[in-house]
Simulated scan of single mutants.
Amino acid sequence: QTFTTEVLSNEMKAILQQVADDNDIVIEKMEVMPDHIHMLISFPPSKAPASAIKALKGRSAYIFLQNHPEIRCSQYWGGHLWSPSYYMSKLGNMSKEVVEKYINDQKYTETNKKPHKGAQ
């Protein structure tokens, strides 16, 4: 888990916002979890979805790890901040408000989970 403090979480939010601004990506909603991020983004139809994700993940990792070289040594992905995988879905028949609520609820749900039986 990397984003374990509010300072680190807020730093990643600021980095992602800057990367988005630089790449014509609008972050509609974002929650930084300890080990992953939920985002609702929009971008011009001329931009391929994979290139939007590549820009966000690649540049944010570069900036964050420049600021925190000690974290690079402790990551699971061979010194990389993000795993190579991601999940992306179009809104489809869901409203933007439903997705925003889902993202909001993730922060509440994951921070209030009870430990599994036998967990230390």
Rank of each mutant, 00 (worst) to 15 (best):
I103E: 01
K90P: 03
T2G: 06
L40M: 09
K101H: 10
P45T: 11
V98A: 10
N10W: 08
D105E: 14
H36R: 04
Y108C: 09
P115T: 08
N104E: 12
K101V: 03
G58W: 05
M88S: 12
E6Y: 00
G79P: 02
Y62A: 13
E28K: 03
S89K: 06
R59A: 14
F3T: 08
Q120C: 08
I15A: 00
Y62K: 14
A20I: 13
I25Y: 00
E70K: 04
K113M: 04
Q1S: 15
E31P: 04
I71V: 10
Y108D: 15
P44K: 13
Y76D: 15
K29S: 12
T2H: 02
A50R: 04
I71N: 12
Q106N: 13
A119P: 00
D35E: 13
H68A: 15
S74A: 11
T5F: 02
D105L: 03
S74K: 10
I27L: 10
E110Y: 08
P49N: 09
K57Y: 07
E11F: 02
S42I: 02
G78Q: 10
C73N: 15
Q120I: 13
T5G: 12
D35S: 13
W82F: 00
S60L: 05
E70D: 11
Q106R: 09
F43N: 09
D24A: 13
A14R: 08
R59S: 14
Y102I: 06
L65M: 10
A55Y: 00
V99C: 12
F3W: 00
A20L: 15
M30W: 00
V32E: 04
N104I: 04
Q17L: 09
H80L: 10
G78P: 04
K101C: 08
L40S: 06
K47E: 05
W82Q: 06
M33Y: 07
V98F: 08
P44V: 06
F3S: 05
I15N: 01
I41V: 15
S51P: 01
S51I: 06
Q75P: 01
D21I: 09
L16E: 12
A61R: 07
I41T: 07
I25P: 01
H116E: 15
H36W: 01
Y76W: 11
D35Y: 02
G58I: 09
K101F: 00
T2Y: 01
D35N: 15
R72L: 06
Q75E: 06
P34C: 05
L8I: 05
E28C: 00
Q1N: 12
A119L: 05
N23D: 04
E6H: 04
K113V: 01
Q66Y: 13
P44G: 14
N93A: 04
I37H: 00
K113G: 02
S46T: 15
G58Y: 06
L16K: 11
P49R: 04
S83N: 14
P49T: 11
Q75T: 09
A14Q: 11
P69W: 05
M94N: 14
I71L: 13
H116R: 13
K47P: 01
D22F: 03
K54E: 11
T4S: 14
